[in-house]
Design a protein around this nucleic acid. Structure first.
Lengths: 341, 341
DNA sequence: CACAAAAATGCAATCGATTGCATAACTTGC
DNA sequence: GCAAGTTATGCAATCGATTGCATTTTTGTG
């Protein structure tokens, strides 16, 4: 199979006996070129099977029309929804999306950032890893004025748009909901406190307790990595607590799930004995028995918003842009795990 | 914030009073360059904050070190697992992964393929959409000898590696399992028959029935798009069938889930009255009550394999490569929905 | 020491599109 | 019919790394 040589704008120019610059302009619908020649050139391009060499153009213009995305784990419903949303908008706007996962590993996150940087992405959308506490790898971008948008797990003190759900509000609503159900001893399984989102979920929870005149009890809060296994351990520990909880607010659905399953194993009734509320509305939460009350984060929409913002920044490099923190609406989805019939 | 000008190999060359070609070679550890100068150059590069301009290199070498991936829907556990696997290997090998979703829309799939092509991806990994029946958009790649690897939903008659699970085997095992449980009237909810995977799942099912001396009944098979809504409709229809099924083999877990939920609504007992088997082992299948017996496809491993194969092809463009169809092991995961205690 | 062979380095073209500026072609009004 | 103004096209440099080939330097050997 012989490689047919690619047609270039020069070939077209030669064929039509005009200059390459005219061809280049015509193909981009530059109004400098008359309608007539534009049409002629496009026709020829079509016939000659011309395909623009993006590499050459990128090289020349120093733009790649590519948006880099780093998420902790692709294979997680919330994140893949966000990616889906990013891709949706990016595609419409003629951008390409490059995706990497950090696996919550700082080293990897850092290396990926460097790679994306050297690959000259036009912008970077990311949710930082659980263990990320320094941000030199991101300075690379801000130093060169490459747009950065954070979502979900954001970093304070870096100039960038941030798309978050109102985690405080979420935590508050969740705990309030449990209080409204008559629960008095509400435990919480929280995530790593270096991540703002988990801090806020907890703060919301505490505020609700306070508003509900429920004294705060240190021993009712456990912090872990929110995995299935750790969730189970946390529940085990809570069950040995001097004051037995009658409700647990879990900072993610994975933990809520492990609580539901483990309590079922122990024949402790959910929600009668212990009510459970999760966070994120994973697909399984709806269908497990009992189905899990949780907070719905609009992942797809967050992705769309992130893409819109970054593309806007890429297209109009506004020097004195005001960076916003956009709070997406969060919604309590009440299901069986928290309400006695 | 002034943009510091980027350091180029020419800057380094000038600083060290040598030629740019030497610098270029040294940085790539070309053995033509002596150890001594190599070290000197690298040191200088480091100090001067040199970062290779990938765009220039790509342009020159006509390679992008980028692998394109097209999946029907990112936001689906199986697919995001595959992506995760692809990304895993690609990253290790210094490749970047560009991801797009077709939303099972042929137009979009086609456009994406064109875009990826013009963006000069070095290879394309894809699972075609439900409605894709023509393959001109893929000829673009095969014509130019750009490696192509299919996974899951593959296309026959195109020269490419294919990574599939043994859907026939899966269908067979599923139906056999139901027969072994004493079921005699086993219905099937199958997918679109233009997709080989669904054909094969059905063929496996039919073979098992045949081997089990169960007469085949046309009315016991329904084809649809395997969505949650359509699944419910299919079940409804099966319940009105002259011969009521005592088991349903669903071609995916989504449909199996809708069956489980709908039957529960109707107070029809699963598995006692009707046993259910799904396909794909979605995360929810494990935790729904009753948990769903299903076939586990090794998504992550499939992604890894796909990435390995395509990278191998990219690196050694072997003209007379033999294309293989790799069947990944598939495993029946027996859960509550198919076994009476 | 001479000279061939081997090793190291340099030269310069090249990839293809883009774009500031120069020039050419065409209008228009008087 | 011509100057001034518009509109359309062309010239040529440029982006930065790569690489075939030429050239220089070093090494080794008789």
């Amino acid at each position: 199979m012989t490689q047919k040589p690619e047609t270039t704008i020069h070939d077209i120019a030669r064929a039509l006996n005009i200059s390459a610059s005219t061809v280049s302009r015509a193909l981009k619908d530059n109004p400098l070129i008359s309608e007539a020649t534009r049409a002629k050139i496009k026709k020829a391009a079509q016939e000659m099977g011309y395909r623009p060499n993006t590499l050459a153009a990128n090289f020349r213009t120093k733009r790649t029309n590519t948006i880099g995305v780093i998420v902790p784990l692709i294979n997680r419903h919330f994140f893949s929804s966000v990616i889906s949303g990013i891709e949706d908008i990016a595609y419409q706007q003629g951008f390409t999306v490059t995706i990497s996962q950090s696996n919550d590993d700082f080293e990897k996150e850092s290396k990926i950032a460097q790679t994306l940087f050297t690959n000259r992405v036009d912008g970077l959308i990311l949710s930082i890893g659980m263990n990320t506490t320094t941000y030199d790898h991101l300075k690379l971008f801000s130093d060169r004025n490459i747009p950065l948008v954070f979502f979900d797990r954001v970093v304070e003190g870096i100039k960038a748009h941030k798309i978050v759900v109102d985690d405080f509000e979420g935590g508050y609503i969740a705990a309030k909901h449990l209080i409204d159900q008559g629960r008095k001893k509400i435990a919480m399984i929280g995530g790593p406190q270096n991540l703002r989102i988990y801090q806020n979920r907890q703060k919301g929870y505490m505020k609700a307790l306070n508003d509900g005149q429920i004294p705060f009890d240190e021993s009712m809060i456990i912090h872990n990595s929110l995995s299935r296994a750790e969730g189970k351990l946390a529940v085990k520990k809570l069950l040995q607590n001097p004051t037995l909880p009658d409700a647990i607010f879990c900072a993610n659905d994975t933990t809520a799930l492990s609580a539901v399953l483990f309590l079922r194993e122990l024949n402790i009734k959910v929600p009668e004995d212990i009510a459970i509320v999760g966070f994120s509305n994973e697909p399984f939460s709806e269908v497990v028995t009992p189905s899990i009350t949780t907070l719905q984060q609009p992942g797809f929409e967050m992705g769309q918003k992130a893409a819109e913002l970054i593309i806007q920044q890429i297209l109009h490099k506004d020097k004195n842009l005001k960076f916003e923190t956009i709070k997406m609406p969060i919604e309590l989805i009440v299901r069986e795990s928290s309400v006695c019939r």
